[in-house]
Design a protein around this nucleic acid. Structure first.
Length: 581
RNA sequence: GCGCCCAUAGCUCAGUCGGACAGAGCACCGGUUUUCUAAACCGGCGGUCGCAGGUUCGAGUCCUGCUGGGCGUGCCA
């Protein structure tokens, strides 16, 4: 660390020393931000907060800091501009830190050592016996990205697929099967047949309440524990569904540490109910067992057992929370579930809070917006999940994107080897990247016109930057996976002209911390776009292979380092990058 | 009715604990290739930060009210 201190950390400690800041509050007040205007320097510090703690005028404190932090190996200059302290790092130190760091895979560029943190992430969680459609995409890619980011930061991550394989949705499927099912069709194509039955059920249940009553009976039969047709069917559909979901998961590059769906908690709910009873918060209301939450500011009570004796979503989530607490000792349990389920998680937390369970503070809903499609007739944005009663299968969307990429390759790089493989990678990435680009709480406006266009802030744009870097390395004598040996004898000052790239790379650590803290992969997505942009711009005016030997070597190291970091960033998002495209 | 979320350029969005002249991409206009991939780069055009108050030395950011859109609202998930 003393060899190559992080410039930001170094500057912070120098400012702390100059101001003799020691208390946590004072140290906390020393926050560096990138200046809005690059001309101001590489890092800025607004002296407002610290000045207030000290009862000083901010400009006065800023001036004192500027005078008190003398240049050293890392810091080139520190100046005060009004209440701001602006610092500039020595280009050699900056280049050495980020290039060598990225080549060696030192944190934050590479994975951090184990932090001891345990993070549970509940994500994806599709319902069995239904196709994997666009609506499942968001939870899947957001949850997976958050998991990778935490793991990169050294946490032990438990990614859980909390499959919807219990409760009324399945019971409705059972009802449809028993009424209209065709064993031969089921044999031929289980998932398709069940989806047809489900659509039939939805259509008929609208004006036939008897269906829902029948479904409730089937659920009772399933939950009775008896070895009956419901149970056999449940097991069959669960197996079939898991096999079918593997297709999308493989294409998206998503894996789980645990596949413990709702059914997993079948035999754990009574113990959970006993805990709620013991805590003295359970009461009977209209024949149902509920926990009232008015004191928590929630007017809707949480129902844990229906009047017919069966359990609900809440019952299973409560049992799941207790199980996860015991098994994984989590610091945080993140539920990557659509924003429309906010009340559910507020209730879950409130029940635990009423029970005085510390767990209440560790569970956290990570909500996200809907996927919207443009209605070409009205021009309005509408829910993507269903159109005319039919879900849009994820595979269809991915296939369309891949086909589009294939066309672009034919047009722009017809001689490309492995074009189909590259098209698959780039096409799938374009969809994933598009989903992870904006703040997760915002609805995703899924516009084919926008997807067809691979210009600007898109997955292909970032991948293209990585491919250009790969191309340069391929034409040099440097291996694509070259490491720190590239930097062994470099004159780091020769990379002074790459300051935009270097300063962007320097932000990677902050980027990851913010992304993890806020459960916000879009912060990483934005970083990759920015890094790709600074690289594209740099390559225009700074030729690598034709530069004189010393410069060429320095730039090759930069190229290798930036390529690695692009790969790391994209990798955290679950996106690969081809070496040619 | 009540609760929550969203509102920034024609479109899609950034904007870090309230801080230095509000930034990108798309679209549009103009330029860059005998030079490592033009899926790129450079320049131009474009904003009463939904409206009205308030707090503050300072508000796109915090508070209140309103408008518009979305989601939710005891035995679905």
């Amino acid at each position: 660390m003393t060899e190559r201190p992080d410039p930001h950390e170094h500057l912070r400690s120098r400012i702390a020393a100059a101001t003799r800041a020691t208390s946590p509050a004072e140290l906390h007040a020393i926050q560096l931000v990138p200046p809005k205007n690059r001309a101001h320097g590489d890092a800025s510090f607004g002296a407002f907060a610290l000045a207030k703690l000290r009862g000083l005028a901010p400009p006065q404190l800023a001036a004192e800091i500027a005078a008190g932090v003398a240049p050293d190996d890392v810091i080139e200059s520190v100046t005060a501009t009004g209440p701001f302290v602006n610092a500039r790092f020595r280009r050699s130190a900056l280049a050495r830190h980020v290039v060598l760091g990225a080549l060696r895979g030192d944190p934050p560029f590479g994975p951090a050592p184990a932090s001891g943190k345990s993070i549970v992430i509940d994500f994806s969680s599709p319902n069995i016996a239904k196709p994997f459609h666009m609506g499942h995409l968001r939870s899947t890619v957001i949850g997976a990205a958050i998991g990778r980011i935490w793991r990169h930061l050294g946490a032990t991550v438990h990614g859980i697929n909390h499959l919807g394989d219990w409760g009324m949705p399945f019971a409705k499927m059972m009802t449809a099967w028993m009424r209209w099912g065709d064993p031969q069709e089921l044999q031929k194509a289980p998932m398709r047949h069940m989806f047809e039955l489900y659509k039939l059920y939805t259509a008929k249940a609208k004006d036939d309440p008897a269906l829902d009553a029948e479904a409730a009976k089937h659920f009772q039969a399933l939950e009775s524990g008896a070895d009956n047709e419901e149970r056999r069917m449940w097991k069959f559909l669960r197996d079939e569904s898991l096999a079918a979901f593997q297709g999308p998961y493989d294409r998206l590059g998503v894996a789980f540490d645990h596949v413990t769906g709702e059914s997993f908690f079948e035999d754990k709910m009574e113990a959970a109910m006993a805990r709620v009873t013991a805590a003295g918060v359970l009461e009977v209301d209209d024949g149902a067992e509920v926990v009232k939450l008015d004191a928590q500011g929630i007017k809707v009570p949480c129902i844990l057992r229906k009047s017919d004796g069966t359990t609900l979503y809440h019952t299973r989530d409560l049992a799941a929370a207790f199980w996860r607490e015991a098994q994984y000792r989590p610091d945080r349990i993140l539920y990557v579930v659509g924003a429309e389920q906010k009340l559910h998680f507020d209730q879950l937390k409130a029940v635990l809070a009423r029970m005085k369970e510390p767990l209440a503070d560790r569970i956290e809903h990570v909500p996200f917006g809907l996927i919207l499609a443009k209605n070409e007739e009205t021009g309005k944005w509408e829910k993507f999940a269903s159109r005319g009663g039919n879900a849009i299968f994820l595979d269809e969307v991915l296939d369309e994107a891949v086909a589009n990429v294939r066309r672009v390759i034919t047009e722009k790089n017809p001689g490309l080897a492995g074009a189909d493989r590259v098209a698959e990678q780039v096409g799938v990435s374009a969809i994933v990247f598009n989903d992870l680009k904006n703040s997760r709480i915002k609805d995703v406006k899924f516009d084919w016109e926008q997807m067809l266009n691979f210009d600007g802030e898109t997955g292909p744009y970032v991948q293209f930057a990585a491919a250009r870097l790969s191309g340069i390395l391929r034409k040099s004598d440097v291996a694509l996976d070259a490491g720190a040996e590239l930097g062994a004898t470099l004159d780091w000052n020769l990379l002074a002209d790459a300051e935009e790239v270097l300063l962007t790379m320097l932000d990677f650590g902050t980027t990851l911390e913010r992304a993890a803290d806020q459960s916000e992969p879009s912060i990483v997505t934005g970083f990759t776009i920015q890094l790709a942009g600074s690289i594209h711009a740099y390559l225009r005016d700074h030729h690598v292979l034709r530069a004189e030997p010393a410069v060429r070597d320095a730039r090759l190291a930069l190229v290798a380092a930036a390529r690695r970091l692009l790969h790391v960033g994209l990798g955290l998002l679950g996106v690969g990058a081809p070496d040619e495209m």
